[in-house]
């Protein structure tokens, strides 16, 4: 039996889809069988970020309304032989076309075949959110170091705590800009974690490469030399139960001299 993890945030634009794509990718890289489920019906994106848009034939609503079998709708990612699949959202229906019970049945079915089901949740706390959470057993809340995002994360955590079938959620702080945080212009990691008082499962630095990779349909987690990629891989390892220390985020462009000093271990 696999685990179904919902990736949610309340607020839009904090990086739920990117996080879903990258955690899924990182878990597949670890050799796990992963199914990504996009529940953002009407505004699907996950397929674009994964670069699988042109292979979609059937979607989530087709499956739920019995027009096809689950296996027919699942899009296989050929880069990971037989490990990573995507169940795309419908583009033509809206969120009310699906009920929470239907979603739960579907996710329960997928759990038999996959180690991890990563559910990408739409923004907001309406029907779309309820559908996404219905089948989940674990939750990851994504936030950015902004007051408004943290406020919405707080709200979502409150709602998740009421769902008895979901374990206490984990937190990802996304889009961290080390220099702003250092100057105190951004909420720092400690502050946010203390405020939300849930377990921190990872921090991801804001990196231009992430956007570039997403636009190319190649999740950044596939690139082993990127700071954000390492962050996502670390999160995947933590999901698998390893204990990995938090990344030390430092300012880039420090000058050659500091780099040499660092190389020799001089502080």
């Amino acid at each position: 039996m696999g685990e179904a993890i919902v990736i949610t945030s309340g607020k839009g634009g904090v990086g739920k889809t990117t996080t879903s794509a990258n955690i899924g990718t990182a878990l597949a890289l670890q050799g796990k069988r992963v199914c990504l489920v996009d529940t953002d019906i009407g505004l699907r994106n996950l397929d674009v970020v994964m670069g699988l848009e042109n292979r979609i034939i059937y979607d989530l609503v087709d499956v739920l309304e019995g027009r096809c079998k689950v296996q027919q709708a699942l899009v296989k990612d050929k880069r990971f032989d037989d490990l990573l699949y995507l169940l795309p959202a419908a583009q033509t229906s809206d969120k009310n076309a699906v009920s929470a019970e239907q979603m739960k049945t579907l996710i329960d079915k997928l759990k038999q075949d996959y180690d991890y089901i990563i559910i990408d949740c739409p923004a907001g706390i309406e029907q779309g959110y309820r559908n996404a959470v219905a089948g989940a057993t674990k939750a990851i809340v994504v936030t950015t170091p902004e007051v408004s995002a943290v406020r919405d994360a707080d709200r979502i955590i409150g709602l998740l705590e009421k769902e008895e079938h979901v374990e206490s959620p984990n937190l990802i702080i996304n889009r961290i800009r080390p220099h702003l945080m250092k100057n105190g212009d951004m909420l720092d990691v400690e502050e946010i974690t203390q405020h939300l008082s849930i377990n921190l499962i990872g921090i991801v630095a804001d990196d231009d490469q992430v956007i570039k990779a997403s636009n190319h349909g190649e999740p950044i987690a596939m690139n082993p030399n990127n700071v954000a990629s390492v962050a996502y891989r670390n999160i995947a390892r933590r999901i698998l139960g390893e204990s990995v220390p938090l990344q030390q985020l430092q300012e880039e462009n420090k000058g050659v001299f500091t780099k040499i000093k660092k190389f020799f271990g001089v502080k």
Partner: peptide
């Protein structure tokens, strides 16, 4: 007595 965090919206 209540042991809880009262979150946004609650």
């Amino acid at each position: 007595s209540v042991a809880k965090i009262i979150r946004s919206g609650q």
